[in-house]
């Protein structure tokens, strides 16, 4: 039987390993799409918020798992929601792709702010920019619900910890803590993907944006099909 501190470390390490060995391949395209959609703006703040949102959802799910001590009943309860999130993600990536290339008149989703001249306009521009950055937190929370094998595995550990806890409250706290540790472990890999997909340093971006838009539309359709079949 591992001590509580050891379990936190083991699950954090698991998150770190899974991040580079799994998430880059499975979730990397979503993160890259979000980076590309920023169109040269700094990726750090939006992606940190996205990750905090994702980890918030993991923490909440871990809390529920720890309180109930049952992995299968909780996942069965949220299965249709996860399916919906997967389809939504596909639609979102398609819209982002089309908007990024200017093929639909929506501007850049989440990065839609103009370059104003006057003081009032500049202030509004900054507010708009802040608001669009802030949307990455709820987006991260929502996408934290995406079905994912390693997240399920970590949730099993949270449910087991809940089963062995002396009370539901204690189980909930441990489960939540475990999932927060797991989520933190996955952050470095996804931030790396976000940074690599950032084109802020690139002068001739138009061609890349057009090519990326097509890839994003294909990727979005792939997610939708997977979501419908899931």
């Amino acid at each position: 039987m591992l001590s509580t501190e050891t379990i936190y470390f083991v699950i954090f390490s698991s998150g770190l390993a899974v991040g580079f060995g799994h998430c880059i391949g499975m979730c990397g395209p979503i993160v890259a799409s979000l980076s590309l959609n920023l169109k040269g703006r700094s990726v750090l703040a939006p992606h940190l918020l996205y990750n905090v949102g994702r980890i918030t959802t993991y923490g909440l799910l871990g809390g529920i798992m720890g309180a109930t001590g049952s992995f299968t009943s909780v996942t069965a309860g949220i299965a249709s929601l996860q399916k919906g999130v997967m389809v939504f993600t596909g639609i979102l990536i398609i819209i982002m792709g089309l908007a990024m290339a200017g093929w639909i008149p929506l501007g850049s989703i989440f990065g839609d702010y103009y370059n104003p001249g006057g003081l009032l306009s500049r202030t509004f521009g900054k507010l708009s920019k802040t608001r669009s950055t802030a949307t990455y937190y709820p987006l991260g929370m929502l996408l934290g619900l995406l079905p994912c094998g390693p997240v399920y595995t970590a949730l099993i550990a949270a449910a087991r910890a809940g089963m062995e806890a002396p009370s539901s409250l204690r189980g909930s706290l441990i489960g939540s803590g475990l999932m927060l540790s797991f989520g933190l472990g996955t952050v470095p890999s996804l931030l790396l993907v976000a940074k690599l997909a950032d084109l802020g340093w690139l002068k001739r971006r138009d061609i890349i944006y057009k090519v990326s838009s097509v890839i994003m539309v294909i990727l979005g359709v792939y997610f939708m099909v997977k979501g419908i079949r899931y």
Partner: peptide, 10 residues
Amino acid sequence: GMPGMNMGRN
């Protein structure tokens, strides 16, 4: 685990 895919410690 899954062959060729890191699925975390289960």
